[in-house]
């Protein structure tokens, strides 16, 4: 029997702007039981008048990191994401409970090639996997050769730019910009399609573990293409982002 997931008041110890629209909250959660890469937390906001709102956010930090980091994309029409992005500041408390989710998770104990496909802020749980892997020893890393394909609208929308650049030494990182690219851009400039998955993904014959995360149309399209390319549906784990304003 799993113990009850209690609400805990975490402390915001740092905030980090990742892009003009995405901010990372660094939380210290009392008695955090630890998490697996890919899991999420629920957050709850209660207003003075008792009104409350809850949302789920993927954890961006590695399990090895004692703090819990969430990267929030600001949705203008939203109720919760503007609060988390614009109002919350270091020193504030934030109610969280978790970790939640036991299917869209990966660890270096799952040997074999790893293919991560991210659309927009779908990079967040995949980043936890990449960060987990960089903290593993050389043997584990060698057992889990990793490729990331990350689709963003513009260069400005790419989250974790610097870290992804550094990852390039140890994992293959491919970016595609779907709306607008800098003049000197030499990466992909289109939506993820069959040819792109064939070019940068692992062949199905190598039985990679595949994780796809992004908005619903993106995830639907990528997961369907992967199955058409011969990947077993059971090897393709997906997380579709609904509106989490």
């Amino acid at each position: 029997m799993t113990p009850r997931l209690d609400w805990r008041v975490s402390k915001v110890v740092d905030v980090r702007d990742e892009t003009p629209r995405a901010r990372t909250l660094v939380l210290e959660v009392p008695e955090w039981p630890g998490h697996r890469a890919g899991q999420h937390v629920d957050i709850r906001l209660v207003a003075e008048d008792g009104y409350q709102a809850q949302r789920s956010y993927s954890i961006a930090s590695a399990p090895e990191n004692p703090s819990v980091e969430l990267t929030i994309e600001r949705l203008a029409e939203g109720e919760v994401s503007p609060y988390l992005s614009d109002v919350l500041r270091p020193g504030d408390g934030l109610e969280v409970r978790g970790p939640i989710g036991g299917y869209f998770v990966w660890s270096t104990a799952q040997a074999g090639p790893l293919l991560l496909v991210a659309g927009g802020s779908g990079i967040v749980p995949l980043m936890a996997m990449l960060r987990h892997r960089t903290r593993a020893d050389e043997t584990r890393r060698a057992e889990t050769p990793t490729r990331l394909l990350y689709s963003a609208r513009t260069w400005d929308d790419v989250i974790y730019k610097e870290e992804l650049k550094q990852l390039g030494a140890d994992a293959e990182v491919h970016l595609t910009l779907t709306r607008d690219a800098p003049a000197d851009w030499n990466g992909f400039r289109r939506r993820v399609d069959r040819a792109m998955l064939q070019e940068v993904g692992w062949p199905a014959s190598e039985l990679p573990n595949v994780y796809v995360c992004g908005p619903t149309p993106f995830t639907e399209s990528v997961a369907t293409l992967l199955v058409e390319l011969g990947h077993a549906p059971a090897m393709v784990r997906t997380e579709r982002f609904g509106p989490t304003g």
Partner: peptide
């Protein structure tokens, strides 16, 4: 309940 500073129904 823990009140979230500055949070209001929108």
């Amino acid at each position: 309940p823990f009140i979230a500073r500055g949070f209001h129904r929108r």
